[in-house]
Simulated assay, not measured.
Amino acid sequence: MWIRLLAIAGGAMVLAQLPQLAGVGLSALPLAILLGLIYGNLSQRPAQAAAQAPILWCQRHALRAGIVLFGFNLSFQQIAALGWQVVAIDLLVIGTVLAVGIFVGERLLGLSRELAVLTSVGSAVCGAAAILATEPVTRARQQDVAVAVATVVLFGTLAMFSYPLIYTAAGLPPSAFGVYIGSTVHEVAQAVAAGQSIDATAMRSAVVAKLLRVMLLAPVVLVLGALLFRRRDTAANGGAGVAVPWFVFGFIAAAGINSAIALPDFLLGGMRLAAQLLLALGMAALGIKTHWRSIRRAGVRPLLLSALLFVLLLGGGLLLNAGFYH
């Protein structure tokens, strides 16, 4: 099973480099879960304990290690260079999407709290990586994680085709439009692709604004765990309080090291590649264990929630950015 997992994760990373897929911002993570789904649903092999052990290891340990190493993509200097406007925009976008998504998903659409939170955090912060980082706090079922990833990837891809059309009517300069892209797009790879569709200035602004949203992943996970899942964790731990996702502090420490020390390019590149591989392994394992019927059983309501958040990000985000830059 290790060979299959590595083949799926490595294949996803290779496919993500193809111009046709990179052009729409499809990164290795959604491709890994898709390939894992295909393999898991077509394979007729019985679920033996020897095969399950690598899958469980990837779902638990590889994901957490990948999130920690993902912190080396960021530095606090990037935040300082942005200016207060971008920080304010990102905070408002994340707070609004989380509040609306969780309320509508749980109260109006009748979704489980876990699915509503995972879908909302994927839209609000950084797509599949945010969903994976939040999953240990919510203790969601694997089909909820798969459904959240699938819907967020779908509407993140649709957004890629929307930004060039919006740019012609928005009246924002390229740098400001790049901030709009970075503050509303789902995935880091999509920020690069969408920015490139405008120009180099827009791409730089989009990537930096997007990386700030990624930086906010750590406090978002901690706050969601403390506010929404504290009672469950207290009961599960015999009254010991909220379960702390320690890997989040590793994520912060990695960003701090990258901010304080000028690490060699080859070392940074190696850690970023390792982070991508570990996260792709986790997504491959999730895909293998998820059946199509589980996703079909979720129905249309998760799609409706992701569609609402898609409209909120593009429409509300445009109004917010226009208000700051006009």
Rank of each mutant, 00 (worst) to 15 (best):
P245E: 01
T134M: 15
S197W: 04
G241C: 04
F324C: 03
L118F: 13
L216K: 00
P264Y: 05
V300N: 11
Q52L: 15
L278G: 03
P264T: 04
G71L: 11
R204L: 11
L98A: 11
L26C: 09
R297C: 07
V104D: 02
T151R: 01
A298M: 14
V244S: 01
Q190C: 07
L268A: 09
R296T: 14
Q190S: 11
A194S: 11
L42C: 12
L216N: 00
G23F: 03
I89Q: 02
L15G: 11
A191L: 06
F266Q: 10
P19W: 09
V152W: 06
V100S: 05
L286I: 08
Q276E: 10
A235Y: 02
A193E: 09
N237Y: 09
A255H: 03
R213N: 03
G269Q: 12
G25E: 07
M160C: 15
Q85G: 10
G182D: 00
S120P: 05
R64N: 10
P136Q: 12
R293L: 10
V188F: 07
V188P: 01
L15S: 13
P174V: 03
L5E: 12
E135M: 12
T234P: 02
T134Q: 10
V311S: 05
L313W: 01
A218L: 07
V179A: 02
P245V: 01
P46H: 05
A202C: 01
F76C: 15
L281S: 03
T157L: 13
V221D: 00
A218G: 06
F251K: 06
P19A: 11
A209Y: 00
A16T: 02
G241S: 08
A275K: 12
F266W: 14
I38H: 09
I55H: 01
V121R: 04
V86D: 04
I198A: 01
G110E: 11
L92T: 15
V153D: 07
G250F: 02
V121N: 02
Q78K: 15
V121S: 07
A47R: 15
R64S: 11
Y167P: 01
H186T: 01
A275M: 05
A65Y: 09
G11M: 13
R64M: 12
A298N: 11
P173Q: 06
L69M: 15
L320K: 05
F310R: 05
L314Q: 10
V300G: 08
C126K: 05
T168E: 15
A240I: 01
A53P: 09
L74S: 08
A253Y: 12
I33V: 14
H186E: 03
P19Q: 11
G315M: 08
Q48I: 14
Q78F: 13
A116L: 09
G225R: 00
G25L: 05
H186N: 09
I102H: 07
L305F: 00
R107D: 15
T290I: 10
A275F: 03
A62C: 15
Y325K: 04
L29Y: 09
F247H: 12
L281I: 07
V93L: 10
G323I: 00
A22G: 13
C126F: 09
S259F: 03
V300E: 12
L82D: 04
A280M: 11
A148E: 08
L35A: 15
F103P: 10
Q276S: 13
